[in-house]
């Protein structure tokens, strides 16, 4: 009783949080390496063999740097803003299903922290809180570039949130459930990854995900050439590191949610082909991590390849292309569900 209700959930939370934070630090290294290789450079090579210890050096540097608060800043909001940005990105992991129930040391353990019956809505609503971190950081800095950047960022987040939420509605129509575990189970029983059922929804979700995490080609809020450094221009040291963590944790969230919704979560490739059943030898959670990693790689690949959009092009894409497409997709999925 005590073990099932307190110890195991606490252990799961501890493991997931640590995995996310360690994953984030190595994502930074991976990003620098991938972009370097794309541009025929070597990337960080000095710290450890092939620079693999670079993240540790980065963390030490950020923690020992002086933490500056501008004189005219609103101190209270200025210190709270990084936390508001980071915490929603971390608590979303509560409903991400990393694997099915497995027996571990003679005990049935589910490889997810909890299975809410409104899991998908929980993801969307918690993610919508993250925008406060950005708006408040820009406002509290009391400085013009951060303010402009935060206005851009929040307008961008709110616009793309509509399109992304609409695609999630069509996914709910397909799966018939809001629970993240239920969506994976639905893909198992329907014998197909939803990527092949809803390719348009997948496309809109991925583009919206790029925009919501402020990644290239939609990294307007951090456009160095226009806005010096974006909404965190005035931040330094550990508080800046928190924004960094939040951005990369958000990337992992988008990748994990996309994996769950469109790539069958922990299911092996081609779950309907019996001849490939030897793939089941690989533990389910490994498939989940591998698929998430593919998405993370695409994030970096897109950043290394595509130039930045202009702000008006970004808004036009969001409101005039993605939102109408997403609404049409909901209508079509509904019709298909009713008629077939």
């Amino acid at each position: 009783m005590m073990v099932d209700q307190v110890v195991i959930p606490a252990l799961k939370i501890l493991i997931v949080l640590n995995a996310v934070l360690v994953g984030v630090t190595f994502m930074v290294l991976l990003e620098r390496k991938v972009i370097a290789w794309t541009q025929a450079r070597l990337g960080p090579m000095r710290v450890g063999p092939y620079g693999v210890l670079q993240p540790i050096a980065d963390v030490v540097k950020l923690m020992t740097k002086e933490d500056i608060t501008p004189v005219k800043a609103d101190r209270w909001v200025f210190s709270v803003a990084p936390l508001i940005a980071l915490i929603p990105a971390l608590i979303v992991f509560a409903v991400i299903p990393f694997g099915p129930e497995v027996s571990l040391f003679g005990r049935q353990v589910a490889l997810y922290i909890t299975d809410l019956n409104v899991g998908l809505l929980y993801v969307v609503s918690v993610a919508s809180i993250g925008v406060y971190g950005i708006i408040l950081a820009g406002w509290a800095s009391n400085s013009k570039f951060p303010l402009l950047a935060s206005l851009r960022a929040s307008a961008q987040l709110i616009s793309y949130e509509v399109a992304v939420t609409m695609t999630l509605v069509s996914m709910i129509v397909s799966a018939g459930t809001l629970s993240m575990v239920g969506i994976v189970n639905a893909q198992e029983s329907q014998q197909v990854w939803y990527l092949f059922v809803q390719p348009l929804a997948f496309f809109i979700f991925f583009v919206g995900g790029l925009a919501e995490t402020n990644r290239a080609p939609f990294d307007m809020p951090e456009a160095e050439q226009e806005l010096t450094g974006g909404f965190h221009t005035e931040y330094s040291g550990m508080r800046f590191a928190l924004f960094f963590l939040a951005e990369y944790a958000n990337m992992i969230v988008v990748s994990a949610v996309a994996t769950t919704l469109f790539l069958g979560g922990w299911l092996r490739p081609f779950p309907n082909v019996a001849a490939l059943s030897f793939l089941d030898l690989v533990p389910a959670w490994c498939w989940f991590l591998a698929k998430t990693f593919v998405f993370l790689y695409i994030f970096l690949w897109v950043r290394a390849t595509l130039p930045r959009y202009r702000y008006d092009q970004l808004m036009r894409l969001g409101w005039k292309v993605l939102i109408p497409l997403a609404i049409a997709n909901v209508v079509v999925s509904g019709l298909v569900k009713v008629l077939l």
Partner: peptide, 14 residues
Amino acid sequence: LFVAAIQVLVYAGG
């Protein structure tokens, strides 16, 4: 739970 999620999504987030 549904109203709770809507409260966060529409009120707090919108």
